[in-house]
Design a protein around this nucleic acid. Structure first.
Lengths: 254, 254
DNA sequence: AAGTGGTCTAGACCACTAT
DNA sequence: TAGTGGTCTAGACCACTTT
């Protein structure tokens, strides 16, 4: 398939009988033209008025198409100047945890084993993260998540322990990790702060994850907040780097 | 600040004299109400017609506000049923390389040292990635990226070597990594496939990055494609995990 | 002054879901 | 049947940039 083939592989008119909305069709037409090289990075796209006349759609529809492409970082708009094809920038690349969902998606082969759950006195770091005082009671939980009979994640977590707060509910919801990752999500968690790091496994982690030392691992740290913006839980997953990888594509995709 | 304070911290009417567009104001009003608990996960938002009357804006403007919130995964729309507040789902969390930009952003303290650049015969893996034959000539480049006098990244890369293709240009552009990460980007690269992994450093990497073994590192692999969809370059960055960390927030943010 | 993108209106019509 | 979201129109007015 040559570039000129590609340029014509999609009709360059809007099909009004199609189920695909006009704004989406137009966005795809323009993106295909860019992908085929008809417009190169830095080039100016036809003005919105031009596109209205060319494709026989209203200004609002053209704008919506352009906004779609702008959201995808394919083009950039400049008021008073025009719309221009963007150059590739790696900074716009994003890795999402949807990849992690795949690991959990097959519920038949995913199991969560509770290794430990008890009340402990918060040490300084945990107290800090959970906004409680050092020595306050917190719940400490350790679990091992297994997929396909092989251990995939080791999870340690400190939970708020406060009789006045609905901790049982929250623990149940957060405990069912598959819900947080792939299911319906949590109704009492308003937001979460997440961080990913690369780390060396310690002996305990390597044992549980059935790995030889030294071994590299992903460390996914999380803090969950309730609707009062109070921390609910702080913890981290250790994931065998052999079983996890984050991939993405950035730039113009047909 | 209590929940009821928060509920009223933003006027619940559209300010027509503001520089902030009406659709954005309305989206923020609704998001603030959700964040304050006025609408909880699973709750149905007022219908679009209701919102039109309540806030005195046209249907298109209301729709744009709702679309904004839907893009942010704050709400989900269901045709014929209504608009509902979403529960938190970790799968929607995304880590972007913008964090990496920060490392490169201060150009005064960032330098790229070329360690090696020569023409070699492609081994099987490189040939595969670059879609050439084993034994074909490719350019092999090794560089060390330093910020604040400390080594941050070790980069190895195989580049297409084909007299008929604008390799010099491409090499220049890809070589100036700061451009790809934080600058204007590349005009000849159409898209890139990226992958992040956690890995153990080998001896050479630890030496260059001035780290003691054993050490964990991020491995960022890349393949760049030109506008003919042909691979231009395959390579990977090794980053000291001490200096790099990806963070994000998911859920409802005020 | 002319051309560009940005916002907004006040409807219309359609598809889908519930009752 | 009534209510919901989804698309689309044919303009209007504004802010900005270029000539």
């Amino acid at each position: 398939m040559t570039a000129s083939d590609r340029r014509n592989s999609r009709p360059n008119t809007i099909d009004r009988t199609s189920f695909e909305p006009a704004y989406s069709q137009l966005a795809n037409i323009l993106k295909a033209q860019i992908a085929a090289g008809a417009f190169r990075p830095g080039d100016q796209l036809p003005s919105e008025g031009q596109l209205c006349r060319t494709y026989g759609v209203s200004p609002m529809t053209v704008r919506r198409s352009i906004n779609l492409l702008a959201d995808q970082d394919v083009v950039a708009t400049a008021q008073g100047r025009g719309t221009f094809v963007k150059r590739l920038q790696l900074g716009t690349a994003a890795f999402d945890l949807g990849e992690l969902q795949n690991l959990f998606s097959d519920e038949r082969t995913t199991s969560v084993r509770l290794l430990d759950a008890r009340i402990v006195a918060a040490h300084e770091r945990a107290a800090n993260k959970l906004a409680v005082s050092v020595g306050d009671n917190v719940i400490y939980i350790r679990r091992l998540i297994t997929t396909d009979e092989r251990p995939a994640f080791y999870h340690r977590e400190y939970l708020i322990y406060d009789p006045r707060r609905p901790i049982v509910e929250s623990e149940m919801e957060i405990t069912s990790l598959s819900g947080l990752f792939s299911g319906s999500g949590s109704a009492i968690v308003k937001r979460a702060d997440l961080a990913i790091n690369a780390t060396l496994m310690n002996e305990e982690e390597a044992n549980l994850l059935q790995t030889q030392l030294p071994a590299a691992a992903f460390l996914l740290e999380h803090i969950f907040y309730d609707f009062e913006d109070r921390p609910l839980s702080w913890g981290w997953f250790i994931a065998n780097s052999e079983r996890l990888r984050f991939t993405t594509t950035v730039g113009i995709q047909d």
